[in-house]
Amino acid sequence: MSIWETLYQAAKKEYHPEDISPFIYAHNVVSAIESDNGQIFTGFCIESCSGVCNLCAERVAALNMYNNSGQTRIKRIITFRDKPPYGKGSGIPCGACREFFLQLNAKNKDIEIMENYTSMNTVKLSSLMPNWWGEDRYKNKH
Rank of each mutant, 00 (worst) to 15 (best):
residue 1 M to C: 04
residue 4 W to L: 08
residue 7 L to N: 01
residue 8 Y to C: 09
residue 8 Y to S: 02
residue 12 K to I: 04
residue 15 Y to R: 04
residue 15 Y to I: 01
residue 15 Y to E: 08
residue 17 P to V: 05
residue 19 D to W: 12
residue 20 I to D: 03
residue 20 I to H: 02
residue 23 F to T: 14
residue 25 Y to A: 01
residue 32 A to H: 04
residue 32 A to G: 01
residue 34 E to K: 04
residue 36 D to F: 07
residue 42 T to D: 01
residue 44 F to Q: 07
residue 45 C to I: 01
residue 46 I to V: 15
residue 48 S to F: 00
residue 49 C to M: 14
residue 49 C to T: 15
residue 49 C to D: 15
residue 50 S to E: 14
residue 51 G to T: 10
residue 54 N to E: 12
residue 57 A to L: 04
residue 59 R to P: 02
residue 60 V to Y: 00
residue 62 A to T: 11
residue 63 L to N: 15
residue 66 Y to S: 06
residue 67 N to P: 00
residue 69 S to M: 13
residue 70 G to Y: 05
residue 74 I to C: 05
residue 74 I to A: 05
residue 74 I to E: 05
residue 74 I to K: 02
residue 75 K to G: 02
residue 75 K to R: 14
residue 82 D to P: 01
residue 82 D to Q: 12
residue 83 K to C: 13
residue 85 P to N: 01
residue 87 G to R: 10
residue 88 K to G: 06
residue 90 S to Q: 11
residue 91 G to Q: 07
residue 92 I to H: 07
residue 93 P to V: 00
residue 95 G to Q: 13
residue 96 A to E: 13
residue 96 A to R: 15
residue 99 E to I: 02
residue 99 E to G: 00
residue 104 L to F: 04
residue 107 K to H: 03
residue 108 N to I: 08
residue 108 N to Y: 03
residue 109 K to V: 15
residue 110 D to Q: 09
residue 110 D to V: 04
residue 111 I to K: 01
residue 111 I to L: 09
residue 113 I to E: 04
residue 115 E to T: 08
residue 115 E to W: 01
residue 117 Y to I: 05
residue 118 T to V: 06
residue 118 T to A: 09
residue 123 V to P: 06
residue 125 L to H: 03
residue 126 S to W: 00
residue 127 S to I: 08
residue 128 L to M: 11
residue 132 W to V: 09
residue 133 W to Q: 13
residue 134 G to P: 10
residue 134 G to I: 14
residue 138 Y to H: 07
residue 139 K to N: 08
